[in-house]
């Protein structure tokens, strides 16, 4: 699954110091639940993203434990406080050991 996985992130380019901003993230991933069977009746093994974190300048915003009931192409919307200019770091952890990362800078308005 590690190939072709491409996160999408939406957040403002700038914010006032101390402002709360809305962040949306979407990542393409099959999130194979481990409940499905293939054409021969064999169970397709579970293969999901099991954790998603967002940090800002090294401080935690949100840490989500994800289970097989999260839909294909996982989507999250949440809010973060922006105390200063800096960088959001988004990380997705795959069952297969792959880690998908993206960073977005935000300036003070």
């Amino acid at each position: 699954m590690a190939q072709d996985v491409k996160p999408r992130i939406k957040l403002p380019k700038s914010a006032a110091a101390g402002e709360t901003v809305t962040i949306k993230t979407l990542i393409n991933h099959a999130m194979e639940s481990g409940q499905r069977k293939d054409a021969d009746g064999n169970t397709i093994p579970r293969s999901i993203i099991n954790r998603f974190t967002t940090e800002f300048n090294g401080q935690m915003v949100l840490d989500v434990t994800m289970e097989p009931a999260i839909s294909t192409n996982p989507y999250f919307e949440f809010e973060a406080i922006v105390p200063e200019a800096g960088e959001f770091k988004f990380t997705w952890y795959d069952d297969d050991g792959s880690i998908y990362e993206d960073v977005k800078k935000i300036a003070l308005a």
């Binding site: 709360t20 401080q59 915003v61 989500v64 999260i70 989507y75 949440f78």
Partner: peptide, 25 residues
Amino acid sequence: NPTPGVATFNFGPLAGSQYGSTRIR
């Protein structure tokens, strides 16, 4: 669901609110 777990949101010090939205099965 066959396995009841969906997700657990853990909010850090810079969470703007204790709010989250997602899509589930």
